[in-house]
Design a binder for these strands. Structure first.
Length: 703
DNA sequence: GAGCCTCGAGTTCC
DNA sequence: CTCGAGGCTC
């Protein structure tokens, strides 16, 4: 069976540990079974069934049980060996020096660092009065450990960890990793084994998955999984297409090479040999220093280009390391200090289907609330029907939920082993809804080649009407302050507002009668509605919610046609003359204005007093120093809001775009600028601060 | 026809 | 913010 071919059902799932008071022996046996099964899925099949945090939890449960009842500690217990197994098809490699695992400090608070320091000092019989100990702190990469064997400076073999004693020869795949030198710089030692982690960068992982999706191939759950799969390919040409990276962090067998006296010096020496060593490391003394490192890296965890699951502390001095030695298979002088999990398991309670503004029907996972990545998550989008089926998510399943940083929570996959007997059917959107919109019961349809199902009800569908109203009133369009979703719900459900023009017929008495609406709020809202009547043609066009017509296109159309009448009557060929308007947009516009109901809405809005100045004539003789220039805004400017800055740039004839490319003339960066700033720098696009922008607007004015 | 550059649209939580 | 897709360019 090729490693990528996952057939979980071949493996009988082990009985889960019973939570009821079971005899400890039976409990330990059940835990051992379960852990063996999970470890096999993780290490050998590259198909983890549960998040790491869950494995760790079961592992610790077994450890605790064995500590309490030492008689239960069998030689084959997962706690007694480093996990993994040799796969058929690869040549086994016996490690000259065993590849050990590292003890995990599971306390994710600063306390974890203090406990490690205290243990080390106790073992060394140091007192408060002794000098502090130097520690080397590094990142704990989320990849897989590899041993590289160099003889006379030449890479002769690369092996996985396997069970720690014997791994697999994966030299053919490792040689495809460009970062790993095939020959060391200035080193001809007879034997030098370098250990480190093969991993996949997040951007490489995303690109790989995008490629897999495009080919309709199965995507990978996470970067580590993808990296492990690549390293275990029997065919190295496949591995070569998987973008892997490497960091060195330790040694195996060494002959004829002077090992530096400290770990930090060793890392420097490895870097000098031409091996990639992560720059994110430090030498610290005291537990406080370690705790600070842990917190500092934790704060930046999401912005690192690769996944980590914690940091690693090592006693820096090799002589001290030797004095500390090992306990069973783990060094006493090193520890991994983890971070809270970004993945958790929870149960899928149901699948709701939402109706969007355009009628798009989106399946949303209703989850048993779970704390992951710093917040409690109870909803997660399933995007669309295909996506939901691809993951085979069913109601009642235990699912893995991930949330990293600002990323929207997502359902990564299903724990098939825990699928209950009474699990729901495979997701079928049409069947679920009996072909009807869940809100208005209009027929639903999915056009050829489209991913999404849509409600055909249009504005007769209350859900779409509500979204249309919210869209119309939003800040970048008609800007009606105070018209939020709660109010829109009441207005539409109470049939007070049936169409956009109804908004302008609202009276004080009908408003004040609503829930949570006092005299003051009603007056303010009416004032906001009144104010919104004075707008621009561009905003008005955008606010109508015509498919494929967003802010930017609406502005282009307004500028090109000048008046609404000319636009409404324009033929498709005339519409195509507008820059950035192609057949799809042109037909969408034509289709919209061909419907009498839409023309009527426009008519009524104007009758209600909605008006705008003619676009023609706006092309005044005001100086336009930024004519033809494209700018990108990023971060927070000290005194200008994003919209203000944008308005100023547009008034000067410039265009504000959302993404940086080589066509961008300037990037205006404020504080907390993100990836756009990096991109500007890598493309050599000039970067301005607010003062620079003002100078550009003003300075060119005289020219 | 491929690849790049934008724009449009959807989405979660506090 | 990110993905998908429309439009433009080569």
């Amino acid at each position: 069976m090729p490693p990528s071919d996952i057939q979980l059902d071949l493996f009988v799932s082990a009985p889960a540990a019973a939570p009821e008071p079971t005899p400890p022996a039976a409990q330990a046996a059940a835990l051992r079974e379960r852990l063996h099964h999970l470890a096999h899925a993780y290490h050998v099949q590259d198909a983890p069934e549960v998040p790491d945090a869950e494995y760790d939890r079961l592992f610790q449960q077994l450890q605790a049980l064995e500590a309490e009842h030492p008689a239960l500690r069998t030689p084959d217990s997962p706690t007694q060996r480093v996990l993994g197994a040799v796969l058929e098809g690869f040549t086994p490699v016996r490690h000259a020096v065993p590849m050990l695992s590292i003890r995990t400090e599971t306390d994710t608070t600063a306390q974890g660092a203090h406990e490690f320091d205290a243990r080390v000092r106790r073992e060394l019989k140091l007192t408060e009065n002794d000098a502090p100990i130097d520690y080397s702190a590094e990142l704990k990469f989320d990849g897989l450990a590899i041993n590289l064997r160099y003889e006379a400076g030449v890479l002769v073999q690369a092996a996985t960890r396997g069970d720690g004693e014997t791994g697999e020869d994966v030299t053919h795949n490792i040689r495809t990793i460009g970062q790993i030198p095939l020959r060391l710089l200035g080193c001809t030692a007879p034997v030098l084994e370098v250990r480190g982690e093969v991993y996949m960068r997040r951007d490489d992982f995303e690109a790989l998955n995008a490629r897999q999706r495009a080919l309709n191939e199965k995507t990978f759950v996470n970067p580590r999984n993808a990296a492990a799969g690549a390293v275990r390919q029997l065919d190295s040409s496949i591995a070569a297409q998987r973008p892997l990276s490497f960091f060195a962090y330790g040694l195996g067998e060494v002959q004829g090479w002077d090992i530096p006296a400290t770990h930090s010096a060793l890392l420097d020496a490895l870097a000098a040999l031409g091996l990639p060593v992560c720059a994110e490391r430090a030498v610290l003394e005291s537990a406080d220093g370690l705790a600070t490192f842990h917190a500092r890296i934790g704060a930046r965890r999401d912005t690192l280009p690769f996944d980590i699951d914690g940091v690693v502390y090592k006693v820096n001095d090799r002589a001290l390391q030797e004095r500390l030695g090992f306990v069973t298979r783990e060094p006493r002088w090193a520890v991994a200090h983890k971070y809270p999990a970004q993945e958790q398991m929870t149960r899928l309670l149901g699948i709701d289907i939402q109706v969007g503004r355009t009628g798009k029907l989106t399946p949303v996972a209703k989850l048993e609330p779970v704390f992951v990545g710093g917040t409690t998550v109870s909803n997660a989008t399933l995007h669309n029907e295909d996506e939901t089926r691809r993951k085979d998510v069913r109601v009642g399943d235990v699912v893995i939920v991930r949330r990293a940083g600002d990323v929207i929570p997502e359902v990564v996959g299903v724990v098939l082993a825990d699928r209950p007997a009474d699990v729901g059917e495979p997701f079928d959107l049409y069947k679920r809804l009996s072909g009807q919109c869940p809100v208005c019961a209009s027929p639903i349809e999915r056009e050829e080649g489209e991913v999404d199902w849509r409600c055909t009800g249009g504005l007769t569908c209350p859900a779409q009407r509500k979204q249309a109203l919210l869209h119309f009133a939003s800040r970048r369009m008609m800007d009606i302050e105070g018209l939020g979703d709660k109010l829109v719900d009441q207005l539409v459900d109470g049939q007070i507002v049936r169409s956009l023009p109804d908004l302008y017929k609202l009276g004080f008495t009908s408003l004040a009668a609503l829930e949570r609406m006092g005299d003051k709020s009603a007056t303010n809202l009416l004032a906001a509605i009144e104010k919104s009547k004075h707008t621009t043609l561009g905003r008005f066009l955008f606010s109508l919610g015509i498919r494929h017509v967003g802010e930017s296109t609406a502005k282009d159309l307004a500028r090109h046609f000048g008046t609404l009448e000319r636009l409404m009557d324009a033929r498709v060929e005339e519409l195509l003359e507008v820059p950035d308007v192609g057949p799809v947009v042109a037909n969408s516009l034509r289709h919209f204005f061909d419907q009498p109901i839409h023309r009527e809405v426009v008519e009524q809005l104007r009758a209600a007093g909605v008006c705008w100045p003619d676009e023609i004539g706006l092309a005044s003789d005001a100086p336009r120093p930024l004519l033809g220039k494209t700018l990108v805004l990023t971060g927070t400017l000290p005194s200008l809001s994003r919209d203000e800055a944008k308005a100023m740039i547009e008034a000067a004839g410039g265009k504000v775009s959302g993404s940086v490319s080589k066509k961008t003339h300037y990037v205006v960066a404020g504080s907390e600028a993100g990836s756009k700033l990096d991109k500007a720098q890598s493309l050599g696009v000039p970067v301005l601060d607010e003062a620079g922008l003002r100078a550009l607007l003003a300075g060119a004015e005289g020219a």
